[in-house]
């Protein structure tokens, strides 16, 4: 039996660490949760298979560079090309970050500790952001390392690679705040998955339709704004303005100027406001 040696209750007089420790611990805990680490094997299937799919273009790209000395696809367009996979990752994993604590009312156990709502939400957003960033930036980096090792003719596209990694970070913040805000509106995981994927599909479907409708009716410059409904094209438009890369859309061009990046910032702010309102309400229950 386990209770042969009853040494009685022992008090704890060791160190009690501060806020950054708890927030970091919560962030790492949530990040592990996104990838299903420390969870049953079935929780790992989805995130790791999607991460593996993200590597396919990298493998193809390195192979063609090595064999026929040609680049297929570019760094700046990687996120747009792979957007469906990134979106599925967001839809399937964002609810696992927020839903269980809301559904099983675990929040009071955090809030009765030194953790505040802001820190809690901040740690969750940070975890999802890091996960999405890794999902996009790791393949980009592997591709770039491959590029350097193959030693293609001409200077290496370092600028484009760094721009793409920067935009991967921007995309990760945008997707994680909006995705978590959508997922946190319902305590049910399934509904969270459905709502995130629905919003993505609508935005993807609507963008070319709006563009075409406006273009056909003669509002050519207005049509360009239609592309910005989709978050991946929105961030791509910001990349075009910030880093001078080419636009990765089927047709037409983006509206120029700082508008896309301002829209990104406004969306992030709005999503954070929704998240904090949602959690303030949950906390007072």
């Amino acid at each position: 039996m386990s209770e042969i040696y009853d040494i009685g209750y022992r008090h704890y007089d060791g160190p009690r660490l501060g806020r950054h420790h708890t927030v970091l611990a919560l962030g790492v805990h949530s990040l592990r949760g996104v990838f299903g680490l420390g969870r049953p094997a079935r929780s790992k299937i989805m995130p790791f298979s999607l991460a593996a799919i993200m590597m396919f273009p990298v493998v193809v790209s390195i192979a063609t560079m090595a064999m026929i000395q040609q680049r297929v696809g570019d760094y700046s367009g990687y996120a747009v090309v792979m957007q469906a996979v990134v979106a599925i990752f967001l839809a399937s994993q964002a609810p696992t970050v927020v839903a269980p604590d809301l559904r099983h009312r675990v929040l009071p156990l955090y809030l009765s500790r030194p953790v505040t709502i802001t820190e809690y939400v901040g740690a969750k957003v940070a975890a999802m952001t890091v996960a999405l960033f890794l999902l996009v930036a790791v393949p980009l980096t592997v591709m770039f390392v491959g590029d350097l090792l193959v030693d293609m003719p001409g200077p290496p596209p370092t600028g484009e690679y760094l721009g793409a990694v920067t935009m991967a970070a921007v995309l990760a913040v945008l997707l994680s705040t909006v995705g978590l805000a959508l997922a946190a509106l319902t305590p049910r995981r399934g509904l969270g998955v459905a709502s995130v994927i629905t919003v993505y599909l609508l935005s993807t479907g609507a963008a070319p339709m709006i563009y075409a409708a406006l273009y056909e009716s003669g509002y050519r410059s207005a049509g360009a704004w239609g592309w910005l409904i989709n978050p991946f094209w929105l961030v791509d438009a910001a990349q075009v303005w910030l880093f001078g890369s080419t636009a990765h859309i089927p047709d037409g061009a983006y509206p120029g100027g700082p508008a896309p990046i301002l829209i990104v910032l406004a969306l992030i702010a709005a999503a954070m406001a929704v998240l904090s309102a949602r959690y303030r309400k949950a906390a007072s229950q």
């Binding site: 704890y12 660490l17 420790h21 708890t22 611990a25 919560l26 420390g38 156990l109 955090y110 500790r113």
Partner: peptide, 16 residues
């Protein structure tokens, strides 16, 4: 797992 995690949320180092 839950109790270890919540202990860390109270500021205890991992081993403690």
């Amino acid at each position: 797992e839950l109790v270890v995690h919540l202990a860390r949320m109270s500021g205890l180092p991992r081993t403690a």
